[in-house]
Write a protein that binds this DNA or RNA. Structure first.
Lengths: 157, 157
DNA sequence: GTCAGTACGTTCCATTAAAGAACTCATGAT
DNA sequence: ATCATGAGTTCTTTAATGGAACGTACTGAC
């Protein structure tokens, strides 16, 4: 299957990944959340090629995740900022961070603390059910297909 | 920069992506959470090439995300199951699903409902602060670097 | 006025990874 | 014997990436 067919699949994970699922995009978005906005700054920090960066930014702007805004008009120059759609990826980035903190840290431990402004604590992010506020885990959840059951040999865990 | 240098970066997002950040891996893991365990079943459902699937599964087993277990010994055959480390990626998959549901759905809406067994509701996953239980958003959080400040031109939002 | 610096890209080519299809290997069923 | 099953491997073609240089449009220093 081609990558570009992903967006048409009836699966939100596939559709999300059709925009942010390649090798560099989530790192670009991580830097966006850290306040990076400019081409050269992304390129220096990430060490990816300018060619690839250029294409990724175009894709993200096209998908409405980033906005390309002129910040000066000598030679007009542009910066990239998260849109509401992009800001809403915070959960994804935070979840990746928490998993990396837990399972991929070296002896020094996690590289950064996430501080919750509202309560002042160093926070551990947690995914909960919006209805009952209890944690959602693989075991405490199940899925229900809304259109058609996919071809399945056995029930999901 | 080469992809394989990512794991050494002092960033949990980068380290996570060094394992799960390529085009297919998160879709494989999505299927794992749906109960898929066997090579041919992954291949049929995802439509990726057997070659790539083979390499991805090896990587995931090598990283401790999946376990390769013999399930019969006529010709010995193996299935792939999530380890605790893999099960802990639930948050990431759930966050991707929620974002796709909200921003990438077509007219029919989200393809599946996530049911929380504990409360019986169709649940909307939410990332909250484990300390105070309030939602974590881009604006309500900030980061603090534990080792060294990276070269930064401006403060993070 | 020319030369270096800044900043956002584009172009070119060699290397690497992915797509697609066929093939292997062990075994059990027909 | 022949076919089917399941987990891969081995090709060859096509697409994406890495690396480095170039383009463009200004600003300020000499």
């Amino acid at each position: 299957m081609r990558w570009n067919d992903l967006a048409r699949q009836p699966c939100s994970v596939a559709r999300s990944l059709s925009v942010i699922g390649d090798r560099w995009t989530l790192l670009i978005l991580r830097d966006c959340f850290l306040g990076v906005t400019r081409f050269d700054h992304f390129q220096t920090r990430l060490g990816l090629t300018r060619h690839v960066l250029s294409r990724r930014l175009k894709t993200l702007v096209g998908a409405g995740v980033l906005a390309r805004l002129a910040y000066q008009s000598g030679p007009t120059r542009f910066e990239y900022r998260l849109t509401p759609k992009g800001l809403d990826l915070h959960d994804v980035v935070v979840s990746l961070t928490r998993w990396g903190d837990r399972w991929m840290a070296d002896r020094r431990g996690r590289p950064l603390d996430l501080i919750h402004r509202d309560c002042g604590h160093r926070t551990t992010p947690m995914v909960v059910c919006a209805e009952c506020q209890e944690p959602l885990t693989a075991r405490s959840t199940k899925v229900r297909f809304r259109f058609a059951e996919p071809p399945f040999p056995q029930a999901a865990g």
